[in-house]
């Protein structure tokens, strides 16, 4: 029989199967449930607010803070150096360059721990590496970094270092967030370098 007819039948058959698949171009998890659960149980995916404060003070570029709150909340105040990826917009392909990369640790935070944990689970489930959550979110940040005071008689060197770290982070946080809105926007835009990814080609 004519080879053309064979190929045509084969292709149309495959097409019919594809047409019935629940396949879609949108995102679903790539990890197996057991793999994701193993990462969840491993409990290695947290940074404390003190560690984040140290990142901030050292201008450490190995970590990227990602604020998953809404844009309005982000504008009100955020940890300097963080980028805003609202959780409701998390699957927007625009963010994929930030989320799916191997160079930096992505540290998610929200007002508390919940939304950041959703973001962690989704990013990890999608197979992205290097996902962390800032434990306790901004509530913990305010409680520990912004408002904690040393009380006691004698300060140990270790505690002294910790409080100095908090104090410095507090200063940067207050300074940057007190900027007028126009300057703030400028500051954020300067941070926002969109790396162009792969380039298309032709035959």
């Amino acid at each position: 029989m004519n080879a053309r007819i064979k190929y045509s039948v084969l292709l149309i058959g495959v097409g019919i199967i594809l047409a019935f698949l629940p396949f879609n171009a949108s995102l679903s998890f790539r990890l197996k449930p057991s793999e994701l659960l193993a990462k969840l149980v491993a409990d290695e995916s947290y940074f404390s607010v003190d560690q984040v404060a140290r990142f901030l003070n050292n201008e450490d570029s190995t970590g990227q803070l990602i604020d998953v709150r809404s844009t309005g909340q982000f504008k009100e105040c955020n940890i300097p150096g963080s980028i805003n990826i609202p959780f409701s917009d998390f699957t927007n392909p625009l963010w994929e360059g930030y989320l799916n990369q191997k160079e930096m640790k992505n540290i998610y935070y929200g007002n508390d721990g919940q939304t950041a944990s959703y973001a962690w689970a989704i990013a990890t489930g999608l197979g992205y590496g290097n996902n962390f959550v800032m434990k306790g979110g901004l509530n913990e940040w305010f409680k520990t970094v912004m408002l904690s005071q040393f009380s006691g008689e004698k300060i140990t060197p270790l505690e002294n270092a910790r409080f100095e770290n908090r104090l410095n982070a507090r200063k940067v946080f207050t300074q940057v967030n007190s900027l007028p809105d126009s300057l703030k926007t400028k500051y954020f835009n300067a941070k926002r370098l969109i790396e162009s990814k792969l380039d298309g080609g032709c035959e």
Partner: peptide, 15 residues
């Protein structure tokens, strides 16, 4: 998921 604290801007601060 509510921020329990309110940020107090320091109006004298300039970067």
């Amino acid at each position: 998921e509510v921020l329990k604290y309110k940020f107090q801007p320091d109006t004298t601060a300039r970067l």
